[in-house]
Design a protein around this nucleic acid. Structure first.
Lengths: 103, 103
DNA sequence: GCATCTATATAGAACATCTATACAAAAGTC
DNA sequence: GACTTTTGTATAGATGTTCTATATAGATGC
């Protein structure tokens, strides 16, 4: 996975619907049809970092299977961060495109 | 800069026309209008790595200003690598798009 | 002769991601 | 009712790219 995109993917996934850790990675794998597979060792450090920085908030609850799970929701700061990351991503895609196919 | 895209940018820039180190970074900055600014400390390690791996070949020559400069050209292996990186990039852009704006 | 510009180079730090492993609790299984 | 499997969270250690900062060298200008 491209370093620097994971936060974007996590924030957007949680924004659409609060989820617990593994559910986030499941959704990313599913919707990208396996292009991005975020394993626990990458996922949880990222979640902890995002929580530490105040972009997401975790609370113990239940998973769809009825197991105990920490459910994360996005915070107002997280939405701002997500909007900024989106802009940044668009800019990067445009810039790379310009290098790959200069007009 | 997003980690992992530098190789792609360098390979494509050199493919279009062989250049020496600083000329590569100048062109990238120019064509992306300052979105990507590759400083020497990032550029040269990347060039050396790409050369070590056989994707580009450097030869001492002259810059446009008539200074001594190491001019890099892409190798057949480099073209293959570039094609692969392009595909990979397209796939990533598509996948991120799917997460950001699911249909 | 001394500063400045071009150009290459490297050391060291920072940081996100990956591999691998560990741990816990619930559910199934016989 | 022990035992395995499944679900879920967690962390340690390694890896590798990029960034900051600095060094070096040769030309050019004045």
């Amino acid at each position: 996975m491209l370093k620097g995109t994971l936060d974007l993917l996590i924030l957007r996934t949680i924004e659409l619907q609060p989820r617990h850790g593994l559910a986030v990675s499941e959704r990313i794998a599913q919707i990208t049809r396996g292009t991005f597979v975020v394993k626990p060792g990458s996922l949880f450090p990222a979640l902890h970092r995002l929580e530490q920085e105040g972009y997401i908030a975790g609370a113990w609850g239940e998973s769809a299977q009825g197991r105990r799970a920490k459910v994360y929701d996005i915070t107002p700061a997280g939405r701002k961060r997500l909007a900024a990351e989106r802009k940044s991503w668009d800019r990067i895609v445009t810039a790379v495109g310009q290098v790959l196919d200069p007009t």
